[in-house]
Amino acid sequence: MAGGQQSVLFVCLGNICRSPIAEAIFRKLATDQGIINKWKIDSAATSTYEIGNPADQRGQRCLMKHGITTNHIARQVTKNDFLTFDYMLCMDESNLRDLKRMAEKVKNYKSEIKLLGSFDPQNHLYIQDPYYGNDADFEDVYQQCLRCCTAFLESST
C-alpha cells in the first residue's frame, strides 16, 4: 500500500471504552510520526448499545493523563466499513466472531479482520473490556493498546 492512504477501524462491543482509546492512541502515534495524512482512522461497535454516546469518561480521563483527547461518538460497524477499511482491528474473541459473521454478508469485502492484540509484543491476545472495572483497568487497556498500535503502525509502514 506504499504511497496510497491506508485505513484502520478499531472495533469493540460498545465503541465507548477500548476502541476509542485505541483510535485516539493510533491517531496520536501517526500524528507524532508526521504520517497522519496517510491514514484514515476510526472506531466502531459490533453492538447497538451505545450508538450516539461519547467515549466513557474514565477512558477520556486516562487518555488525558497521557496527553491525548478524543471527541469520538459511538457508532456501529456498517457494511460500507468492510468495503472501505484495509484493517479492522478488534479487541476480543467475541468481537472477532461478530465481525466475521457480519463480513460474510458483504460481497467482496476488503478488510483484513484481526485482533489488535495479535500485534502485542507481550503476547496478550485479548484486550479485556474495562467497562465494569476501575481506573487501573482503563490504564491497562491504554498500555496494551499503546503497545499494539505502535507495533501495528511499524508493521504497516
Rank of each mutant, 00 (worst) to 15 (best):
G3Y: 12
G3E: 11
Q5S: 13
Q5C: 11
Q6G: 09
Q6R: 15
Q6D: 12
S7D: 07
S7W: 06
V8K: 07
F10Y: 13
F10L: 10
C12L: 06
C12T: 05
G14T: 03
N15I: 04
I16H: 02
C17V: 07
C17A: 10
R18H: 05
I21A: 06
A22F: 03
A24Q: 05
A24L: 08
I25W: 00
L29K: 03
L29S: 03
Q33I: 00
I36V: 13
I36Q: 11
I36R: 12
K38H: 12
K38C: 06
W39H: 02
W39C: 01
I41G: 05
I41Y: 09
S43G: 09
A44Q: 01
A45P: 01
T48F: 08
T48V: 11
T48L: 13
E50A: 08
A55T: 15
A55P: 04
D56N: 15
R58K: 14
G59C: 02
G59M: 01
Q60D: 06
L63Y: 04
H66R: 13
I68W: 07
I68T: 11
T69A: 14
T70E: 06
H72V: 06
H72L: 11
I73R: 13
I73T: 15
A74N: 10
A74Y: 03
V77S: 08
V77Y: 08
T78W: 01
K79E: 15
K79I: 02
F82V: 06
D86W: 09
C90S: 10
S94N: 14
N95E: 10
L96T: 05
L96P: 01
R97P: 00
D98W: 03
D98V: 06
L99P: 00
K100V: 04
M102V: 00
M102W: 01
E104V: 07
K105A: 14
K105R: 14
N108C: 05
K110F: 05
E112D: 14
L116V: 09
L116D: 02
F119E: 05
F119S: 09
D120G: 08
Q122C: 04
Q122G: 02
H124G: 00
L125D: 08
L125G: 03
I127M: 08
I127W: 02
I127S: 02
Q128D: 12
P130G: 05
P130T: 09
P130M: 09
Y131K: 06
Y132V: 04
G133L: 08
N134C: 12
D135L: 15
D135V: 06
D135E: 15
A136K: 14
D137Y: 10
Y142E: 00
Q143T: 04
R147K: 12
C148L: 13
C149R: 04
C149G: 09
A151Q: 15
A151C: 10
F152Y: 13
L153I: 11
E154S: 15
E154I: 10
S155V: 12
S156W: 00
T157P: 00
